[in-house]
């Protein structure tokens, strides 16, 4: 794997798209669990994937569990999935029951995610196995996320001194990297690249909302809409 840089030439664009596809894959997994499909991949300057994260707001009942924070926490705790710190397996089982989810699948999602299958069927190197202690900041890292980080995540990424954030679609309601605030331009700031595989990211989000609208009974849909309104990124 080559070093991810995002200066706009063909190689870097290919690189960006490569990692963004992985982020989309993570987002796709979130979709299976009834979460708004936003996913991200944290990549070190040597190209190693060191963490990933998907939106988990509904399962955890924790509005801070956006993909970006999940990925950072996960890395920070040396590969221990951040939610293990907050929830026991029994709690997860309970959540699964409430959400009518199959427990084995949930288990896979939360505990057995050391590998991810690429589109050609290969099992990719396991970011779940990167158990090294993280450095104090992320200045040599690139974050690939399917949707523009919200203000919370944008501020968190600034606090962690992220090197560069590459995202797919815009976040019109909460975006902290240009849509509502320009958090990435404050203080030291960080570089952003937008619009990488934007259409795919939008299509994924759309598939979530149309799924909601067609399948959910009215009352449930209402409740879900309320819950999901600001889970975006």
């Amino acid at each position: 794997m080559t070093t991810p840089t995002s200066s706009g030439d063909d190689t870097t664009r290919n690189n960006d798209e490569y990692y963004m596809r992985l982020a989309l894959q993570v987002a796709q997994e979130a979709l299976l669990f009834g979460e708004v499909p936003v996913g991200c991949i944290l990549v070190q300057s040597d190209g190693t994937i060191v963490s990933h994260g998907a939106n988990q707001v509904n399962a955890t009942r924790d509005a801070t569990r956006h993909a970006e924070l999940v990925a950072i926490d996960r890395w920070w705790t040396g590969g221990v999935f951040s939610d293990q710190l907050r929830m026991s397996p029994e709690e997860y089982a309970q959540v699964a029951k409430i959400n009518n989810l199959q427990e084995p699948a949930l288990e896979k999602y939360f505990y057995n995610d050391d590998t991810i299958q690429s589109s050609d069927g290969r099992l990719l190197p396991s970011w779940g196995l990167q158990k090294q202690h993280p450095p104090a900041d992320l200045s040599l890292c690139h974050l690939y996320v399917t949707c523009e980080p919200c203000i919370m995540c944008a501020a968190a990424l600034a606090k962690m001194k992220i090197g560069c954030v590459i995202f797919g679609c815009r976040n019109d309601k909460f975006g902290g990297c240009g849509s509502i605030l320009h958090v990435h331009q404050e203080d030291a700031g960080y570089r952003i690249v937008s619009g990488v595989l934007e259409d795919e990211a939008i299509a994924l989000l759309r598939s979530f909302y149309s799924q909601e609208n067609h399948q959910a009974p009215d009352e449930k849909r209402k409740r879900k809409d309320n819950r999901l309104a600001d889970n975006v990124s």
Partner: peptide, 15 residues
């Protein structure tokens, strides 16, 4: 509760 489970949480700037 969280620090019982992981020492790293203590220094996590986001916690």
């Amino acid at each position: 509760l969280q620090q019982c489970l992981s020492n790293n949480t203590i220094n996590n700037p986001l916690q």
